[in-house]
Design a protein around this nucleic acid. Sequence first.
DNA 1: TATAATTCCTATAATTTTGGTAGGATTAAG
DNA 2: CTTAATCCTACCAAAATTATAGGAATTATA
Lengths: 133, 133
Amino acid sequence: MIISAKGKYALRVMIALAARKGGRPVPLKELAAEEEIPRKFLEQIMTELAKAGLVKSVRGKNGGFLLTRPPQTYTAAEILHVTETSLAAAECSGSGECPRADVCPTLPMWRALDEAMDELLKKYTLAELSSRG
Amino acid sequence: MIISAKGKYALRVMIALAARKGGRPVPLKELAAEEEIPRKFLEQIMTELAKAGLVKSVRGKNGGFLLTRPPQTYTAAEILHVTETSLAAAECSGSGECPRADVCPTLPMWRALDEAMDELLKKYTLAELSSRG
DNA sequence: TATAATTCCTATAATTTTGGTAGGATTAAG
DNA sequence: CTTAATCCTACCAAAATTATAGGAATTATA
């Protein structure tokens, strides 16, 4: 599978947050229960999302997590790039990664693949995704 | 990485075979040395490619492997689908896999992603790929 | 018919990645 | 001061990936 459980959990949680109107922080415990995601695993995921600035965390009692921006401004691409260790076709497809870049017959294909995936995943916003379930 | 070492090895070997004109079988040993792929690992890969009908194997002395068709008839998609355990976005993106298919907010996206990747990888034929290196 | 070069088959082992747990420190509301 | 929450660090188990090993079967050719 291209998309890991972690990535899917992240998306689900973000969708769940988007579905909640109102600025009240949603505690991890609640999100984990609601989405049936192992609590401690989700904790790690939320940390990553928070570090990347996709969510804001509020510590202490009555704390929890909040989206930092309106749902329509998030794309699936953005979210998945945070959690997936690599959404790229190959290690070498980043710019300047490979010394043999100019003779490698497959590099252009990997780059095109990266591009195509990214294009597609950018088409889906949290707002759209949360309006379906 | 989306594409495994195995998949990349497979592509490289297929490209190498495409580059050789002439119907003489190329022994595994030679392919492994030339492409710097672990011999025994490549053996497994060739078995898969042979079972899928992408190459023909010739046993015994002077044996080896051959493409079964002209290089321009193979696409990267075809080759990678043989070797990659799964090129799909999610377990669930196959048709009829998921009971919650009609309420899942992300399923359409996974399917679109599968489609986009496949489309792109179909654009690259062995003939084109082998003409670059 | 012996030998050498090859693929075929089956098993196993090493490494890396993924998915998940555990426990306590820190923060903040009431 | 208690309670409910995030933060931090470490660990662990299972699965997938990337090999490795050794011999059986097949074939050309001397």
